[in-house]
Design a binder for these strands. Sequence first.
DNA 1: CACAAAAACAGAATTGACTCAATTTTAGAA
DNA 2: TTCTAAAATTGAGTCAATTCTGTTTTTGTG
Lengths: 204, 204
Amino acid sequence: MSGLRARQKADRHRRIIEAAAALFREAGYEGAKIEAIAAQAEVSIGTIYNYYENKGDILGAIVSLEVNEVLNAGRGVVARPPANVGDALDTLIGIYIEHSLHYLSKEMWRQAMAISTQLPDSPFGQAYTALDRSLTEQIRALITRLQEIGLVRRDIDGAALGELIFNNMNMMFIEFVKRDQAKIPELRAAIRRQNRILVAAIAV
Amino acid sequence: MSGLRARQKADRHRRIIEAAAALFREAGYEGAKIEAIAAQAEVSIGTIYNYYENKGDILGAIVSLEVNEVLNAGRGVVARPPANVGDALDTLIGIYIEHSLHYLSKEMWRQAMAISTQLPDSPFGQAYTALDRSLTEQIRALITRLQEIGLVRRDIDGAALGELIFNNMNMMFIEFVKRDQAKIPELRAAIRRQNRILVAAIAV
DNA sequence: CACAAAAACAGAATTGACTCAATTTTAGAA
DNA sequence: TTCTAAAATTGAGTCAATTCTGTTTTTGTG
């Protein structure tokens, strides 16, 4: 329990992630060479590959940290949602979007998304899919909450609606990170406009 | 006009695409080495890079062919849609999905999607975004058509609705190609279920 | 028909992610 | 403390995409 080996392992994990995060930000994903990450983390190239299957998995670990923070922040909204369907959705989605560029640059997001579709069975590919599912699930939880409060019709298919809202938001976010000039307020406004159709359909 | 050089160029383009398409199918995208494509097309490696910026652009050219066929097939549905909102959407989306695996394997789709987010400014990245936009536009055209016929309420925001439906379908399709076991009928059923919420909201 | 400039081609050299066999370190039994 | 097996580390080597620099082909002009 907490032997030398375990401590060293955790320490190396941390050093690799910190080195990679710094270099990804400075030089971009492609620009951050494994050799440089290894040097900065003070481990060898081989050790990095002992900890992560490939370069993408290193980025994946960083993305997971960010998305988990977002999920945590979202819980508050689900617990006490604004007393209006449109605002409730906008608030939750706002948290997702505003948090999203905290640690990750658009370029890092692009790479992460690309890797997750390119290698869906790699550790990160699976983790990413699971994160998407958690976000979908959180939106569904909000809808269920709104149904309980009596703001959303009880006969609405919450699961399908959660998927619809998440999928739309996610695709909009993908397009957003693909264009460097795209701005957060415009993204949120576009999503609000799309959701308005749904809100009209589901509000009591 | 149509000099030797232009003819040779077109011919080499064709040979490269044909060689690449065959090898991508046989060996997968990663498995198809540029050297092998060059050999099969009877050009040198350098020539391939003279015609395409990178390996992804070769795949991109093939994807564009497929999506353009799909767009063409969709025109018929927009011109004469089924006399029911749900069926109209299902028919158009059905055409997209059923065609999708005609020339391209799931693995090729994964790679193509990954490249388009990874390199949004490359020739293919831009072309792919434009294709997505065309599909969105076609769905919007269908909605407009249905509004004209009197099947969809006139006060519905057609542009936002088109985006919502396309984005949801596209994300479902991405998840579909990420899982090799996923089957087309299940995909279509899931999308129908999601769209049902919308249909209820917009049908006259 | 020459011939010079422009365009296209060829393939060797470069580059960078990833592998693997050899070496070092750790754990824990005697 | 000493020793051995297991675990972890190392970095030189491999492989394949992409680049680069000379060479060849085409074009159009005199």
